[in-house]
Design a protein around this nucleic acid. Structure first.
Lengths: 138, 138
DNA sequence: CTTGAACCTCTAGCTGCTAGAGACATTAAG
DNA sequence: CTTAATGTCTCTAGCAGCTAGAGGTTCAAG
């Protein structure tokens, strides 16, 4: 049995965030001391670890809710959990692709401008003003 | 001289967003008709184009504020603008790197689970519960 | 028994918008 | 010139996913 602060230290999730997760229904309401303070056990620590890990992987609160639900129905869990993970993977890959396009554009803009102020107009500012200079869509 | 709706159509920025930019100080307050409606000219359309382009490239509102400021002081603009663009580039590259690590992890998790429910425990759920299975930091 | 840290609830703030209410302005058709 | 449809106005509240603060209570060490 440990306090919210101890749970926070064990998992690396901040105290107010733990309370927020409880409010959002990710964590169920724990036991309380006589003085109304939260006391957690091993199961709760594991669940919070699960949540943190999923959040670190970019899963939304909603998706994690679904995953937790699935965990409670082991017979139909695997296919649906796979689907959630797969769609998260698609989402991440799309983000990478779009950021990579931006990176190319930014690198081009950054390179074009030596930063010495010699050019009569700053290449960075000019590039931002004029989308036609771009090589990729965004 | 065109209305906020027309400006929106020209630039692809939604009407409430234009008003929001005005509130945030990115766009200066335009002329008004007798009936208090906003009327924009060519200069404002260009500025909004600049803002949209920068937003599309992931610059924050704050960064765009700085860039606009710099645009008004051409003599000291180039070096600072370069710096802002460069730091944006660093930020984007970091994001790509971290997403790429996640992608690898997710792909591994997704692959491990065939989704047919044969395994006695779902690989996706097990992986999320147990960070020790991960190959990279996150 | 005292003290100081940790805890409680509640509210408000952050970014970058988006949506809605209720009222007024503009514009095109009849 | 009137009327109807659309556009616009301001204001407030909401979204995710927290984070910060106020003001008060409880716990644990000494």
């Amino acid at each position: 049995m440990f306090s919210i602060g101890a749970l926070s230290q064990h998992t690396g999730v901040k105290v107010p965030t733990i309370r927020y997760y409880e409010q959002m229904g990710l964590m169920s309401a724990p036991e309380r001391t006589e003085g109304n303070q939260r006391r957690y056990g091993r199961a709760e620590r594991e669940r919070l670890g699960f949540i943190k890990h999923a959040r670190d992987l970019g899963f939304s609160i909603g998706a994690i809710c679904s995953l937790i639900e699935l965990n409670n129905h082991p017979n139909r869990s695997c296919a649906e959990a796979s689907e959630i993970a797969a769609s998260q993977l698609v989402y991440v890959r799309e983000k990478i692709a779009s950021l990579t396009r931006l990176e190319r554009e930014l690198a081009r803009i950054s390179d074009g401008c030596s930063g010495n102020g010699i050019a009569d107009k700053c290449y960075v500012l000019a590039s931002l003003a004029d989308h036609a200079r771009c090589e990729t869509d965004h």
